[in-house]
Design a protein around this nucleic acid. Structure first.
Lengths: 223, 223
DNA sequence: TATAATAGTGTTCATTTCACACTAAGTCAA
DNA sequence: TTGACTTAGTGTGAAATGAACACTATTATA
């Protein structure tokens, strides 16, 4: 950051992006949080994010922050909305544009937290107290995730390139918090016309091997 | 506006709200546009909106702009999303937070455009060329409107406090652009448990009078 | 070769969605 | 006063969809 000062005729708020990063690890839906090492909310956990640079698109900003924190790029990233209550940051007026990202657990290289003190994954049902209005943002992200789950292909974003139908079913069960009928689920998943068998199978343990699937090339999402 | 200058350590973008205001008039879905009287895009039509003041919430800002342009308040207003491509405004970096609003045609007092040159309603299927990235914003608002139509009670926002089921059906037909079966529609509307008969009826023309309905007190919307 | 463990597969019933046509109640004019 | 006109209001059967439910298939291992 330079010492240069930027001046305007009328007041401009600061603009940040914050990213709600979900993944599934250890059989639970988890959220990436960063421990703040500066005031305000020093020591509290917060969503990863940062200021929007003047030259970058806001979605680029979110993608950049996400890559800096997790080392992953080209993941599912969707805008959640803008949050701009006047006092949400006690320092100055900050409007944040929240995104939510879904990353497959296999892609998670442990977070190379650039400047932040510490980063960690928290189970959604055991979140610590969050800084700013981040609890509200997380709540809305969770709602969005649940709403889209059955009407889009976002669940696939939690999986590796090749996966079994049981893998996929577990994603649903973990997010929805309830068991799903295996036969109905498989019928539904195949009827989506979004996945195709790779021809390969995965064998592990003393039981029948499972067919591997991949997302079809034509991936379309729903608003 | 004062001559005072606002200075920051690092650059802040300007933040505006733009509002996609829909109504139904003359049997068509219409959009409120303002003719720009200053550069850039001077003379072009644009969405109503303006800069976010430092002390106000962004939704308050949208509501204020909407009230200034249309004279109506307490209407349906929902955030659509943030648009922040770096060059979307050629003057400086401007991030806009778009809202969409639905107002009943009866409430429309002709727009008392404060500073803008002119304001007018345009049919959605006959829009003029729009300034900035407003065409994209309008497109997404239309998509949102269509998606929510059958899964929420937003259609009611286009109607007066008391309405007939035929009024409601016409709203659907106009927005969806296709006719709807009368019996199925009425069953659906009543099964919503969101409207109740007022006991009154409206008589006009040489035919049976129509029962009037109102929104039930418990109005809930869906994300 | 028996056991254990997960993969994989169809049918029935209930519910929801869709298509479809007539009667009811008012106004107006002859 | 009656017939013509116009929109309001109502029910049923068929088709599609969603939900419940239990057994066989295939592998690893002891």
């Amino acid at each position: 950051m330079t010492d240069k000062k930027y001046c305007y005729e009328y007041p401009h708020p600061a603009v940040t992006t914050d990213i709600v990063v979900f993944t599934i690890r250890e059989g639970r839906l988890k959220l990436l949080l960063i421990k703040r090492k500066i005031s305000p909310y020093k020591g509290k956990w917060a969503l990863p994010g940062g200021f929007v640079a003047l030259h970058e698109d806001i979605s680029q900003c979110a993608a950049r922050e996400l890559a800096e924190e997790t080392g992953v790029s080209s993941v599912f990233l969707e805008q959640l909305g803008a949050y701009g209550a006047p006092k949400r940051d006690p320092r100055e007026r900050v409007i944040t544009i929240a995104y939510f990202a879904l990353i497959p657990s296999e892609k998670i290289q442990v977070q190379a937290a650039t400047d932040a003190a510490a980063a960690d994954w928290f189970a959604m049902d055991a979140l610590p107290e969050l800084a700013f209005d981040h609890a509200e943002i997380v709540e809305q992200a969770k709602t969005r995730l649940l709403n889209k789950l059955g009407h889009s292909t976002i669940a696939f974003q939690f999986l590796a390139d090749e996966f079994t139908l049981t893998d996929l079913q577990k994603v649903f069960e973990i997010i929805q918090g309830e068991e799903v009928d295996k036969r109905n689920f498989r019928k539904w998943a195949l009827a989506l016309n979004s996945i195709e068998a790779t021809g390969k199978e995965r064998r592990e343990g003393q039981h029948r091997p499972a067919k591997l699937y991949r997302l079809s090339s034509t991936v379309q999402d729903i608003d």
